[in-house]
Amino acid sequence: MGDEDQPRGQGPRRRNVEHMIDQQPTDPTRRGSAALDEARLRQHAIGVRLRQMFDEVVNEPVPDEFLDILRKADQTPPEKG
């Protein structure tokens, strides 16, 4: 897995879950700071969208099939092993 090079020493700082989407490897030079803010804003926007996309499916009603299958399985004892 050569593509899994991990950042050494200066990995993203840990923040709470709400802000994790904002994490960006930051460039310490100051000139880029406006562009950096813009990039962060965009990353945040993508994060919000991503959660919304996921939650959209979470909020769908669960098809009856799921509960039917589980109900049937409930009648049989658990497998051993």
């Binding site: 897995m1 899994e4 991990q6 950042p7 993203p12 994490q23 960006q24 965009r42 990353q43 993508i46």
Partner: peptide, 22 residues
Amino acid sequence: VAVGTVKSRVSRARRALHAILE
């Protein structure tokens, strides 16, 4: 996988997704 691997993948994914959408 290792925690560092997940961090690395998430950060790559964010950058790539941003680039794709841009």
